[in-house]
Simulated scan of single mutants.
Amino acid sequence: MELNSIKPAEGSKHAPRRVGRGIGSGLGKTAGRGHKGQKSRSGGYHKVGFEGGQMPLQRRLPKRGFKSHLLKYNAEITLTTLARLDLAEVDVLTLKQAGLVSQMAKVVKVIKSGELAKAVKLTGIGATAGAKAAIEAAGGSVA
């Protein structure tokens, strides 16, 4: 096979519709554009969301919400994944190496979801009140 012999699959390409080629074609005269108006003109159209000068919908509705750009530096881990990790001491670096949190994560927090049976010592990792109680009940500690 050569680069100059590559062709698209049979039937995947078809010729574009040739409009404005006489009455018999079915797309002659106005060529499917109707009569007059901005949409019928060549080069005449509008930007996305334009409503003919009326205040567009996206500007009529109030602005709501906010998503912090700092969220990408936060990560959370559950008690279940902590138990599955099966380590006595856990810090942010070990979680990154295990692939449980992203490499960009700076703040990691343990949330109470699942069970923890083994004692785990957390260093440099936060925990919710419920998760902290579960870790301490299993004989671990949060520092």
Rank of each mutant, 00 (worst) to 15 (best):
R17F: 09
A138P: 02
K63T: 10
D86S: 13
L57C: 05
Q103G: 02
V142T: 00
R18D: 06
A9T: 08
D91R: 05
T30P: 01
I135Y: 01
L122V: 05
V92E: 04
G44Y: 05
V101A: 01
G114N: 04
L79I: 04
A105E: 08
T94R: 12
A134N: 01
L116W: 03
P62D: 11
D86H: 12
E2Y: 14
G130W: 07
K132Q: 09
S68K: 14
I6T: 12
P8V: 11
L71M: 14
I23M: 08
Q54T: 10
A119R: 12
G114F: 06
L61S: 09
K96R: 13
G37N: 07
V90Y: 03
F66T: 13
P16F: 14
K36W: 04
L122C: 03
A137C: 01
Q58G: 00
K132C: 00
G99E: 06
K7D: 00
Y45N: 15
A133P: 01
I125K: 03
L116S: 05
K121D: 02
G124F: 08
T81P: 00
L95C: 02
K109W: 00
I125E: 03
I111Q: 07
G140L: 01
A143Q: 13
R59T: 05
P56D: 06
A119P: 14
V19P: 00
G124Q: 07
R64Y: 11
G140A: 02
G32F: 06
F66L: 12
K36G: 05
K106I: 08
R41G: 05
